[in-house]
Simulated assay, not measured.
Amino acid sequence: MESYSSSDTCQRPPANSEVAGTTSRVSPWLSPLAHLLGRHCLLPLFFGQIRITGQKNIPTTGPVILAPTHRARWDALLVPYATADCLKKQDLRFMVTIDECQGLQGWFVRRLGGFPVNSKHPSIRTLRHGVELLQQQKTLVIFPEGNIFRDGQVHQLKPGIARLALSAESGDSGLGVKIIPIGINYSQPYPNWGTDVSIHIGSPIRVTDYMHGSIKQDAKNMTADLAKALQQLSHQETKITNHAFAEITNS
């Protein structure tokens, strides 16, 4: 997420081109249907046990960036699943790679709050749209590692998530943006039927705590602390017996 580019139609732009303004929207009928089917049918039937800790760390109001580790394509479904009880009636907005906005998948992504980013063709428009969403008190989901990594390790984070958060906070004094680190762990590197999942939600990172004048250095410090938080959350499985898990039922 270090640099951005996008188009409303999610088509790959030519090199060095600037595309029309970025937008995101949520279908008033598709989103509730997808949530219902995912929460009560698809995820409970596909996975074994889904365990969640730290739901109390999710703010119920104000602009929030959810920053999960990225271990499988299932992550995009499990994040709403794990946070729905805390973010009641809030539609999540997802920054996704431009490749995920192609074809039939792209049709669904664009109608479920997704908007594309393209690191190969930088554009300020996607960053601006992310800032606007935060200023509107929306909740964004951004995978700070950028890609899927199945080795269980937290890889180098892209600095874009910190820059976006700092830009939003500096442009609207008192906005109160918070970043929530989330560690997602699967019992198998390539999840299949019956795979167990654990989702650990960390303490909020308050953007105002990092505003010291130099956005480059502030972003660097915030990114480093986010990486540490994700590393700790990703290794919670070694201390699994010390946690009280909240299991979301199929009802």
Rank of each mutant, 00 (worst) to 15 (best):
Q105E: 05
D209S: 14
Q105M: 11
M1Q: 07
R128P: 01
H155K: 12
A162G: 06
R39C: 06
T208Q: 14
S198E: 14
M222S: 10
L127K: 04
G174N: 09
G171R: 13
P14M: 07
L112S: 01
W74S: 05
H121A: 07
K220D: 13
T139L: 03
A34N: 09
L77V: 03
L104G: 00
Y210C: 10
N118Y: 14
K228T: 11
I199Q: 02
G21K: 12
H70F: 07
G130P: 05
L134M: 08
D218Q: 08
C10H: 12
N242Q: 15
W107G: 08
V117H: 02
Y190N: 12
P181Y: 00
P191S: 10
W74D: 00
G113W: 07
G160V: 05
L78N: 03
Q156G: 09
K228R: 14
T83M: 00
S24A: 15
N185Q: 11
W29G: 00
T208K: 14
L164E: 06
R71G: 05
H70M: 04
Q232G: 14
R128C: 04
W74N: 04
D209P: 08
G202Q: 06
K178Y: 00
T195K: 04
G202W: 02
K56Y: 02
I161T: 15
Q90M: 10
L127H: 08
S27P: 07
L175I: 12
D225K: 12
T9A: 05
